[in-house]
Amino acid sequence: MLENYLREKLEEKSILLMTHIVIGYPSFEESLRIVEAMVEAGVDLMELQIPFSEPIADGPVILHANQSSLAAGSSVRKCFEFAGAVAERFSIPFLFMSYYNILFKYGTARFTAEMAARGLRGAIVPDLPPEEGQDYIDAMEQNSLDPIYIFSPATTDERMKYIARYGRGFIYCVARKGVTGLDTTFSKQLEAYLARCRAATDLPLALGFGVRDREDIDFLKGKVDIAVIGTQTIRIMEEQGVEAVGDFIRSLR
């Protein structure tokens, strides 16, 4: 299971890195090159986002990436093929990230069975709280896949414990209010929030939203197990090209 992999990695490294791409942005060929560069630079696990036309939890950068990928003809079928190919080629765990409609329209049972068959390890579905997701939770379990759940600073201690009951692999802690890709203040307040997260679950913790550079990651060491780099790699790629992605990842720790 994903949790065991993370625990083993944490014996070697003080903090793990999870990166994110939108599949098919800027193209499927370049997506593959980005994954390659990220794996070579030492990321420990990756989120592969299947684009959706209404990504309400994402900020402008990832929103634009979703739309570009769809406009260029991305489909769920192509995303599965892509994910299967990278999961076969690279040894790190790959997770899907998408919105629930993508799974629902495909058929949640069929979707999760295909995830397992193609070597994916888990999924993050930000618009599917546990209350709405029993079919998904059961289907993930049947296929030995990990549903990753989310904590936010607005989540009460009681609700964190409730969510943690359904989470597998790790818990994704959203650093702040707002959408992906905006600034986060790495502060005492964040520390207090992470302490609440830690108290609510024994699962490894990942922190995402606004993690940009080595300084942020140094701050997170000892407080969380995984730092999530999302929007920043898309920005680097857009500004400096795919070639810059590997160097950027290497600069982080």
Partner: peptide
Amino acid sequence: MIDRGYYAGFGGAYLPEILVATF
């Protein structure tokens, strides 16, 4: 949340976690 606003399977509250407390 207890009542999730279902009308024979339609409706619900498919919320990002950050908005649950607000709802």
